[in-house]
Amino acid sequence: MKEFFAMGGYGFYVWSSMGFALFLMLLEPIYLHMQHKSIVKHIQRQIRRESARSKENQS
């Protein structure tokens, strides 16, 4: 196992490359998921506000 990670002495180069790709390719979907949640929350608030306003106008 240790030998595998050492990559014949080039571990730093190989794992820096793999790590950078992994970092960005995990960050992107996680960020998009969080962004989706916050947009949904924002729209839910907006819908509640609007329905409250229309009720006010009716009464």
Binding site: P29, L32, H33, H36, I39, V40, H42, I43, Q46, I47
Partner: peptide, 21 residues
């Protein structure tokens, strides 16, 4: 990720439409 992002873009741009509500 492109489909995830396009869904977010759609929601943001169409947030005032009735189908989103």
């Amino acid at each position: 990720v492109i489909l995830m992002r396009v869904r977010n873009i759609i929601l943001r741009r169409e947030s005032h439409t009735s189908w989103v509500a």
